[in-house]
């Protein structure tokens, strides 16, 4: 497991990667992040911005954007597995439930397949509520692994 912050001197190369290798980190989505993501994306849907509007839609309160949670999958690829040698080619995400606000999420990736012919790995991605284990996002990513210039 690679729970430590990224160390650029230890960037994983294609040869370092093996099927079954995992990486994970924790993250807590905050109201400030929701506000920043809304400004960045232009998605100011009321259910993300207002507790009252969200409750009118049958929710318990405002919820983070799905792609804000999904951005954690980007961080997984770019910073952990495989890290900075990885180039995201495709990603498939299913948003099982809204992420909780101000509660720990566990972001976990596992290498499911490795293709030397294409220098590509396939990751299984799971984002869960750390406290309960409830699934927030499940998905997969196809990641090309570039050779760093020596």
């Amino acid at each position: 497991m690679y729970d430590e912050p990224f160390d650029p001197l230890n960037a994983l190369t294609f040869d370092d990667l093996i099927v079954g290798m995992t990486a994970s980190f924790h993250h807590r989505i905050t109201i400030e992040e929701i506000e920043r993501f809304a400004a960045l994306s232009g998605d100011t849907s009321p259910m993300h911005m207002s507790d009252d509007a969200a409750i009118e839609h049958g929710l318990d309160g405002r919820i983070p954007h799905g792609m804000l949670s999904g951005a954690l999958a980007s961080r997984l690829v770019g910073m952990h597995l495989p890290g900075p040698n990885g180039l995201l080619q495709s990603m498939k995400l299913t948003f099982v439930r809204p992420a909780p606000i101000d509660e720990d999420l566990l972001v976990l990736g596992r290498i499911e397949a490795k293709s030397p012919a294409t220098h590509t790995v396939v990751l299984k991605i799971r984002i869960t509520e750390a406290k309960t284990g409830y699934m927030v996002i499940r998905g997969s990513a196809q990641v090309g692994v570039l050779n760093p210039e020596s």
Partner: peptide, 24 residues
């Protein structure tokens, strides 16, 4: 190009084989 890579990776997984660059 990306679809082709996905296809190759999926074929390798489906058939339990490994291809090499010159072959593909």
């Amino acid at each position: 190009s990306v679809g082709y890579i996905t296809l190759i990776v999926s074929i390798e997984r489906e058939f339990g084989i490994e291809m090499i660059g010159p072959e593909i």
